[in-house]
Design a protein around this nucleic acid. Sequence first.
DNA 1: CTGACTGCAAAAGCTTTGCAGAGCC
DNA 2: GGCTCTGCAAAGCTTTTGCAGTCAG
Lengths: 142, 142
Amino acid sequence: MKVRKHSRQRDAILGNLSARLDHPTADMIYRDLRKEYPRISLGTVYRNLNLLAELGQIRKIHCEGGTEHYDFDTSDHCHFVCKHCGSVVDLPLETDHTLNALAEQTGIGTVECHALVFYGICRSCEEAAKKAVSREQVAAPL
Amino acid sequence: MKVRKHSRQRDAILGNLSARLDHPTADMIYRDLRKEYPRISLGTVYRNLNLLAELGQIRKIHCEGGTEHYDFDTSDHCHFVCKHCGSVVDLPLETDHTLNALAEQTGIGTVECHALVFYGICRSCEEAAKKAVSREQVAAPL
DNA sequence: CTGACTGCAAAAGCTTTGCAGAGCC
DNA sequence: GGCTCTGCAAAGCTTTTGCAGTCAG
């Protein structure tokens, strides 16, 4: 497959992803880019995200919910997914670099990479839940 | 949500999953079950798999490809996904039980569980590729 | 009997793809 | 000029859902 070095859309997509702290879905990037490029299409966003992932310039994150998320940071790190709000964030936790070799020793085949994803409730959702509870306690005694 | 202990279909789905060594998708289970229950519907398979997962009797596996896979073994273990044939298999590798606590120490929130998935090429796909190459070498000199 | 469960079919995501035209080198 | 890329729209897949009838307890 032959690929040009640049295209206005591809650069914009990569730029958008690199400027974000979260790990958005294709649709989130699309909605954001439409402010600046009203005619960009969702198909183009998907095509370029897939292309950039194949080229190793970005990384896909598969997690609960079925929707793909994208990460500009391709270095070895892991993620946390909030089961409540669905947000995906980096976890400043170094993954064990020997894991791939360890997995390969089982004779399974050739191991290229691994993904480590944690699931739970993020702090802001926890605090929102606490507030909801205290509101209930105030409102409850009817 | 109120749930009955048994239903013919739910028992069949759980039975099918428990008897398998692979980690099938909903559709794979559906096609298998139709041999014995020709009138079972795919919707029922999905509904029950989701229910069983919520009850903690089975486990969902999220991996590349977007399609959900299901695992009867809910114990702490990790998986290997072949990028070529898409098969998902258990990896006899114990995951670090301290990982959740370690992740929680970052202050991210409450960590409930984690998933560790390795990607690569499985041995049978590797061997198939080797054979294909040797066939090419025989056929190539035109 | 009652309400949870099922089959069926339609709908709802998310993602890919075919095509004709636009744009880069 | 040739080839890649884009926008648009349609199609493809997986998964969910509404409804009327069925079944388990």
